[in-house]
Every structure is written in C-alpha cells, then in structure tokens.
Design a protein around this nucleic acid. Structure first.
Length: 271
DNA sequence: CCGCCGCCCTGCTTGC
DNA sequence: TGCAAGCAGGGCGGCG
C-alpha cells in the first residue's frame, strides 16, 4: 500500500529519469484508469508533452509537464509506477498504461486491483484542493494538528487517515505513529491532552521520515520506480504483527477493527 | 458538517 | 488436493 513514504520514494526515483524527457508514445490497455477532463482523449493530449519534473502531494505522484499541466497518479493499494530501460521489455502482468519516452525507456503503470488512477489535469485545475496538510511540512505545526483534533469525538486513528485534514498517512503509518506515541487508536480525538498531541505530532514526523530514508515499506507488493523493495517493513512495530510481541513491552500485539480498517496496536502500552 | 455504508476489483487465505 | 467463499483495502458517492 503506497502511502506518503512509498509515494515519495517513487516520485524521487522517477524525477531523475523523467525530467527533461518527452513523452513520445502512450499506450492505454485499460481505459478506465486513465482520464482527461472533458471529451479529449488521454493518449492524444499526453503524446508529445515534455516532462518538467516529478513531485508528490499526499499519496499522489505528480508528473509536471512543460505545458503547465500535470499528470496526477494515485496508486491506491496495488498500483505501481516502474521504469523500464530501452532494452528491458519485461511487462508486469497488470500493466494498464505505458508512457514511452524520448530516450527509448518507458514508465509502466500497473495495478492488479485496478483501483489506481492517472489523470491529466489542466494548469488551473484545483485538483488538490480537498487535500489537507503535508505532515512533513513546516505548515503542519503541533498547534495546527491540535486544531484538527480538537472538538472531535472521532477515534484519533480515523482522523489520521482522513486525507482532507492531513494528506499522505495510510493504515501502516497511522498504526505505527500511534504506537510510538503510546496512544490507543480508538481514543476520541478531543480526549487527547496536549502532551499526547505533541507526542503524536512528533511520532508522525519521525515515522514518516524514517520510512522515507528506508525507501518505504514493502508489505504487499510495493516497489519503487526502479522495481526495488523498500526496507521499512523490517522495522515496523505493530502493523501486521498480530500475536507477535510488542517491541516495547513484550505483550502480544492485537488486531482490532476501526472504521472498517484493520488496526494493530498494543493494549498494554497504548492507552 | 458528520458519520456510516457499499462499491470498486483481484489475489490471497480460510474452510470444507 | 481442490474448490468456492470470504476478506482486505483507499477513496468516493450516496444517504440519513
């Protein structure tokens, strides 16, 4: 499941290879995953575009184009964006879009579950207007985090996953940050006292930035733009570790369900 | 505005 | 061993 650290890793991996290149060919084998606003066609509009750079916003990979438009990609759970060099013609079984580049290499967009999407957006299109704070930006202060949590009875973990408030956190890093901050995921957000809010704010930044340094977590089938696995899955404290000992107190990690999502945590040290 | 539910899909796990 | 049913999951639209 690509979340902020995985998407950041993919974007960085694509940036060097794509910047300055031209898209010379576009192949779409599953039309529903690739769209353009209006009645224009994805293939027609994208072919010939130059690539200015690649960045990330929330869990979106943003491929900036010289025309000012952007190719915005969301990988959902099983989506991949992988580079293929000029000689490499191995194709992942669920490849839905291939962007051919000027130097003979290409970018493969694949997704077994077909939930991922790529969309070409116009320069003025406010495609990210519904996205909340970037959790690693200076804007995301402890005070602003407190204002997001304040007054809401919603479980704190559910708020962490709400992309309209904070963008980029998914199930893995929500669980990990709550564990690090020693907070019960089901705690009503407004019940968190100031020290707990501060611990969680710090834990989010720590967990996310460490995961970026490790190239993301390959828990399902995530790989980076070069097709390599990350290593952050090896240092996860609770996510997916049901029944295994808590790395802090040794008690068993439990799995509960919160807002229809699996939630891993330690009943003993998260309160 | 808020919260909940079902849907989209396929691959893996579970149970017989 | 084989098969079918069940489950998982991020975002979104619909509903109350």
């Amino acid at each position: 499941m690509p979340e902020l650290p995985e998407v950041e890793t993919i974007a960085r991996g694509l940036a060097g290879a794509l910047s300055g290149q031209r898209i010379v060919a576009v192949k779409v084998s599953l039309p529903k995953v690739a769209s353009v606003s209006g009645d224009r066609t994805f293939i027609h509009e994208l072919t010939g575009e130059g690539i200015a750079g690649v960045s990330r916003r929330g869990k979106f990979v943003v491929i900036g184009l010289l025309s000012g438009r952007s190719l915005v990609v969301h990988l959902r759970m099983t989506g991949r964006l992988v580079l293929r060099g000029p000689g490499e013609d191995a194709v992942h079984p669920h490849t839905h879009v291939v962007l051919g580049l000027g130097d003979g290499s290409c970018v493969h967009f694949s997704d077994a579950r077909q939930f991922g999407r790529m969309r070409l957006v116009e320069p003025e299109e406010p495609w990210a207007s519904q996205l909340g704070y970037e959790p690693l930006s200076k804007d995301f202060t402890a005070a602003r985090f407190a204002s997001i949590l304040g007054g809401r009875k919603t479980p704190v973990k559910v708020l962490l996953l709400d992309q309209r408030r904070i963008a980029g956190i998914g199930n893995i890093y929500a669980c990990e940050a709550l564990w690090e901050a020693r907070i019960d995921p089901g705690t009503p957000a407004k019940a968190l006292k100031k020290p707990a809010v501060r611990r969680l704010h710090r834990a989010l930044a720590g967990v996310l930035s460490r995961a970026i340094e490790m190239g993301g977590s390959s828990v399902d089938d995530y790989v980076d733009a070069q097709g390599r696995q990350g290593s952050a899955q090896n240092v996860l404290s609770v996510y997916g570790r049901e029944g295994k000992p808590c790395r802090r107190c040794g008690r068993h990690v439990v799995r509960t369900v919160l807002a229809q999502r699996g939630t891993w945590w330690c009943r003993n040290c998260q309160t």
